[in-house]
Amino acid sequence: MSVLVNKDSKIIVQGFTGSEGTFHAGQMIEYGSNVVGGVTPGKGGQTHLDKPVFNTVKEAVDKTGADVTIIFVPPAFAADAIMEAADAGIKVIVTITEGIPVKDMMNAKPYAKSRGAVLVGPNCPGVITPEEAKVGIMPGFVFKKGKVGIVSKSGTLTYEAADQVVKAGMGISTAIGIGGDPIIGTSTKEAVQMLMEDPETEGIVMIGEIGGSYEADAAKWIKENGNKKPVVGFIAGQTAPPGRRMGHAGAIIGGKDDTAEAKMRIMGECGLHVVDSPADIGAVMKKALS
């Protein structure tokens, strides 16, 4: 068991023949992910990285039975790509693209949901179930197989957390990079819920950032559902000034409730193991699981 992606996932790559798509699709194939083809409008019929290229997602799904897609399409066309995937019946849509206008996501997110698809991202590193499938841009070797799930808004901070967990003698069940944009498909709470329900996952690392209320919502849900598995939480941006955007489009303190301090307080009150220093994630998880 695992969540979102596994060895049976049939993965296509949208924006397959572009430079980002080519590089990361190659890395995914090398990792062992079951990439069955890709989509680049106008290049259908060609072969790329020894896989078939299709003009439309519909055609790719019909010919390959694909159920997962990863999107590297440029920002101006990414929302369209998300909707195309959802309309074609893709079940899990992982969107890596950074810089999609909010207004586009405001339409694409409910559209994907209405077609029964799970959207992860945008502006995220993707999803990895170690030894089964990497659907993302993360360095695969960092994620050794194990029983700790990770939910995170950040890319490199996810790798940092995974590395600490592995070096502390544990491993990763599934890591979900949910993304750092103001509108993202899968919320912290939804990702935590998936891992809570996954029998392979025994503990969860939840990494958030300043901005929005996703982490507080997740913490309240965890408490309401009986704190069934230990959750180690960290919020990046304790030293970030209000009103300034810290790299990620969504990482901005708009009011007193979306500061790191406020989120960490709520997480603590809800029974999470909150770490002040990101250097302590691995050690605290080990202690929580022993």
């Binding site: 950040s154 890319g155 940092e160 990046a236 941006g237 304790q238 030293t239 970030a240 220093s277």
Partner: peptide
Amino acid sequence: VNGAGLAMATMDIIKLSGGEPANF
């Protein structure tokens, strides 16, 4: 730092080590 989340986390580490971050 490489990555926005890790960059914010690094600022936090600087503070916890007794300094104050000069930048993101």
